[in-house]
Every structure is written in C-alpha cells, then in structure tokens.
Write a protein that binds this DNA or RNA. Structure first.
Length: 564
RNA sequence: UGUCCAUUGGUGUAAUGGUAGCACAUCUGACUCUGGAUCAGCCAGUCUAGGUUCGAGUCCUGGAUGGACAACCA
C-alpha cells in the first residue's frame, strides 16, 4: 500500500482551512466555457477539482461560463458533460453563469449606487488607448464622473436595447493608474445584440468574465475556485468585487496548466486542425481531446492516473508525452485481453505438417490476470506471420526467424525455416519451414531453448481487418515554436497515421465491437495484439469490415530512434 | 525598462530552518513462451551573489532566467 504522504499546495491550503475552521467542507467547481471540446489540459483541472472535493468529502459543481454568446454553443455543452462523465466524475449540480444574469445585473446597480461603476461612452479604441501600457499609467475616461442617477438611467437603457453594440460599456471605477492593468477600470458589461444558447434574446448586455466568474462562485458558495496561472493577476479584481458587494467570500487559487511535448493544447489551434481537415474531427484519435483519447483507446483510469502522477504546482511544466502512453500501458497491461494479429502478413507453410489438419491450441488471455482464463486458437499447415519477423540472412542479435534458425510459434510449436519463395521483384512471398511435433504447446521435452517467440494466425481461419497505426500528431517537441514564416502546422508529423489493410486476425477477434459502458457511454473494446501494441475497435468498425486503432506500442521506441 | 508568479537530476514532483527523497525516462543485469511485463541496480539535482543562523533548497537583499498582464475573450 503506497500512500502519497506529501501534500500538494492546494491540499495544504484546504487542510489548513479545515483545521482553522474557515469552512467545514469544501465545494469546488469546474467552469468550462462551452466554446470547444475538452482536452487533456482540462482533464488535469477536472481531476484536480473533483479529486480534491472527493478527498476531503466535498462536492464539485459543473458550471458553464457562458457569458459570450457569439462563441458558445449547446454542441459543446453536451460534449463537455459526456467527457466529464466518461472520465468518471459526477457533479453535484450543473449550473450556468447565464442563470445568474439577473442577480449580476442587480449587483451592478449596487456598485453604481456606491459610485463604484460607471457607464462609459468611449469607443473601443478610445478605451484601449486610455488604458495606458504595462509601463505607463492610463487616463481617466471623460465619462468617469457621471452622476449615479445618470449611470443608473444609462445602464437600464443599455439593458433595454436602446444602444447599439459597442456604443457603451459599464466599467468598474477603480484606478486608471494601477500597476496591475486588470484594475484599470475593467469592463463589467458590454452590449451584444446576440442570441444566447440558453437565454435567447432576453439580454443584449452580457457580463465580462471578471465580473461574472467570482460572483457565480460566490452565489454557489464555492470555497475553492481553482484556475490556471494566467488568472493570478485577476485575483485582486476577483476579491474586489466580492468585497465591495459584501457577498460570500469565495477564494481563487492558481495552478500551472498542463503542457505536453509533441502536442498543442490551445483551443484555437485544435479548432484550426479540425476546421482545416488536418485531422478527421474533434475525436480524431491523434487529437489531445478527451474524446480523441477515448477513440484512441485510452481508458478513463489511465488519464486519471496520469493526472495524479504529474502532480500539481505553480511552476510551468512540460510533461513528456511518454508518461501519458506509459500510464495507458500500465493500465492496459493489467486489463487488456491478449490476441494474436498479424499486421503485415507473409505466408508461412509447415511442409511436414499434415495437409488439411486443424488443431486447437490453448492460449492464455492475459498472463497478468489468471482469472481471464484461456481460449482456443486454431492451428494449421498454412499460417501468416509478421513480415518483419523473418530475415533470410540475419545478424546474430536478430532473435526471430531466419533460414536454418528455430523459433517458437506462441502456444504452438517450434519451427525451423528451410527455404523461401520470391516473386519477380525479389520479395518473399512464402516461407517454408518444418516443425517439431514434440514441441506442441510451445515447450521442448528435451529442454532446448529458442531465442524468439512469434505470433501467428492460421491462414484459413484468419479474419481480415483494417488497422490504423497512429503516432504522434507532431514531429517536434514544441510544435508551437515555428521558425520565421512557418506555423505549428509545419510541425505536423507526416507519419502520424498509416492505414493497414488486409491484416490477419485470430478468429476470436471477429466479434470485437464498440460497447456501451456502465455509465452509458460508447467505448471501444481494447486488446493487446501480442508483440505489436495495444489496439481498440474504432467506431467505423462493422462486422463486415473490422477496423482497429493502435492506441500505443508496447514500449516507447522514439527515444532510441532519435538517438540514432 | 511597471506589477505579479515561478526557478530542486533529462522530465515531473517532495523535503514547511535540521540526513536533498520519490516517480518517469535513460543505461546495466536477472528472469521470461510477448525484444512486453516483472525484479534488482547505476547515472544524475537545489539558477546566481551576498546576508541572517550552530545550521539555509527553505528566511532576507540584490542579480539572472522563464512565464503572465496593455480583448467590449475566458
């Protein structure tokens, strides 16, 4: 039993608050904006928010931060909920910032009455210019000192739709010379005559993030509002609104977002990959989206374990892509049934095996889990083996089949290659070998050893399939970094997908298909193809045309390749 | 030439003034009917200069480096 005794900084904060009686239980929230699909970076946040609440007996709300109607859509609301559920989490309540529009509006009036907010008639350009720069203070708006009555009147008329988009905004009155730019009279409301996916045309003014988020937290009595580092400088503003309004004091804490090498994480870039068809969609198995990983064959456990393993802190980090794969391998190694599949087949004929004979051999389903039992695999005179598993003239370190060398066919017999047939181009079309009947099951009674063990499939019993061999979407470690005149698209890995047709599978794979899991979500069946990697059924698969995706290889090979 | 945040092996992450530890990766060996898994082992770290202290990764001051902020995005 390995218990992680050290606490991360958020656990420290929570335990301190619990100890000191600041609160008796915690309530966190996961606050996505419904303007895109969730990715692995969100998974870290989800695991954190739900994980922390679970650890300390609290709860987590799902809240859609839907304050910008022009970017948001219900398509995303649905996919986000499905992805969170698939990851294995259940929220206490599902909320929308838009549910709070009326309350937010009333609070804005409170601030106006306190002389802490004003309607500004400046244009967008004027406001931008007036804000100053990071090194120069800003200038007060000429409208900054309007009377409370006038502000109240104008703000009400903004709501009524008397003004066009961009004509006026409501601003908090703080300090135009503040060194933290977030406090230079931030905009609270803007006019947007746009249809909202939930409130329809009820509103034509919409609150900005800074004015909506903290207050939404407060309304829900969120104790720990956990977000990423870039919001650090917003915290004084988050606290300012809550303090001026005198409402429930939620607190914001920031952690470093997840970065993974060979991966892009920005919503904008992911959207571009989809829109411009560099991938087949949001759930393309090469995408770092949750649905992409699901289709790729990742398990929720593997993603949760990954998020747990990488830890959480406040320093920027770039996680090795291999850790993600390792986390998958760890889990699938324990749970994925083993099957034999020949992806690049070449015929192997056993000359001294009786023609027309078939026998059933016993194969272990998962050596890591005895309870998975065994299955029968048909064996006959003509088989397929992997083309890469034979070499006519092999070096010493080649442990597989070559002329005159003996290897084991897994769970079957020892065979020795005798000769090959070739086509006009010199490609091997058939390998002839002999077998030792005494080695049935895979062991020699005389105790002799072989170096290699090959997987195989009986030619007459084989099932055909298409196999999609996925690799990293990007060929470079930091895809975002492109030289002059290039973009991240130039860093795409041209070999990220290779489609193999005519792969030969053992018959037990014939009924592999998509299944609906206990949470009601469609998932692939996952297997280990012995010696080849982990594979899963794709949603394109049909009983007539099986399609499998490679989730990952058995072991990382990139490090060695890059060493040369 | 602003404000804020950060800096510990290759990569992550602990050590809360008292022995710099763990994981992943790499490498080596053992074992193996998957060149997988498993097991064992090696290599490798406190950004820098001062200061406080019996004692500093930790506290203080300066510097360096990286990141965030000048959307009517979140």
């Amino acid at each position: 039993m390995e218990e992680n005794l050290s606490l991360n900084f958020l656990e420290e904060i929570i335990e301190q608050g619990l100890r000191e009686g600041t609160y008796n239980s915690i309530l966190t929230r996961f606050p996505p904006e419904p303007n895109g699909y969730l990715h692995i970076g969100h998974a870290k946040s989800i695991c954190l928010n739900f994980g922390l609440a679970k650890k300390y007996g609290g709860k987590t709300n799902l809240r859609f931060d839907d304050t910008n109607p022009v970017k948001e859509d219900t398509e995303y609301v649905d996919s986000i909920q499905q992805d969170i559920r698939w990851l294995g989490f259940d929220w206490a309540g599902v909320h929308y910032a838009s549910d709070y529009f009326e309350q937010l509006y009333e609070w804005a009036i409170v601030l106006i009455k306190k002389g802490l907010a004003y309607v500004d008639d400046q244009t967008q350009e004027e406001i931008r210019a007036g804000r100053g720069t990071v090194t120069e203070p800003g200038k007060n708006s000429p409208w900054r000192d309007r009377s409370v009555e006038e502000n109240l009147d104008l703000f009400e008329r903004m709501r009524k739709g008397e003004f066009a988009d961009g004509e006026k905004v409501l601003r908090a009155k703080i300090d135009m010379a503040h060194p933290n730019m977030q406090l230079r009279d931030p905009i609270m409301y803007r006019i947007l005559h746009a249809n909202h996916h939930r409130t329809g045309d009820k509103w034509c003014i919409y609150p900005m993030y800074d004015y909506a988020h903290g207050q939404s937290d407060s309304i829900e009595h969120i104790t720990h509002s956990i977000c990423t580092l870039e919001f650090d400088i917003h915290r004084p503003l988050y606290d300012w609104f809550i303090e001026q309004l005198g409402i429930f004091p939620s607190h914001q804490y920031e952690f470093a977002r997840l970065n993974i090498n060979y991966t892009v994480m920005s919503k904008r870039k992911l959207l571009q990959l989809v829109k411009e068809h560099y991938v087949s969609g949001w759930d393309d198995p090469r995408m770092p989206t949750i649905c992409g990983f699901r289709r790729r064959g990742y398990t929720p456990e593997s993603i949760r374990n990954f998020c747990e393993d990488i830890g959480v802190a406040k320093r920027d980090n770039i996680i090795d892509y291999v850790r993600l794969e390792n986390s998958l391998r760890d889990h699938l190694n324990k749970v994925a049934p083993r099957r034999m599949a020949v992806l690049n087949p070449v015929k192997l004929v056993i000359d001294n095996y009786p023609e027309g004979q078939t026998e059933m051999l016993t194969a272990v389903n998962n050596p890591e889990n005895e309870a998975d039992g065994t299955r029968q695999v048909p064996f006959s005179r003509e088989l397929y083996i992997e083309r890469e598993d034979f070499m006519e003239d092999a070096p010493k370190k080649f442990f597989r089949l070559s002329l005159g060398r003996e290897v084991r066919l897994r769970y079957a017999y020892f065979v020795t290659a005798q000769s090959v047939e070739k086509d006009a181009e010199g490609n091997i079309t058939c390998i002839h070998c002999t077998y030792d009947p005494a080695t049935r099951g895979g062991d020699a009674p005389d105790g002799r050893k072989v170096k290699g063990t090959l997987h195989w499939v009986s030619a007459q019993h084989a099932v055909d399939a298409e196999v999609r061999m996925f690799d990293r979407l990007f060929a470079t470690e930091a895809p975002d970094e492109a030289p002059e005149g290039k973009t991240f698209l130039d860093n795409l890995n041209p070999d990220s997908l290779k489609v193999l047709q005519g792969c030969k599978l053992e018959p037990a794979l014939a009924d592999a298909r998509m299944v609906v899991n206990e949470r009601g979500i469609e998932e692939p069946m996952r297997f280990q193809f012995e010696r080849m990697g982990y594979f899963c059924t794709d949603r394109d698969s049909t009983p007539e045309h099986l399609v499998f995706n490679r989730a990952c290889s058995l072991k990382d090979t990139w490090a060695k390749i890059s060493q040369g």
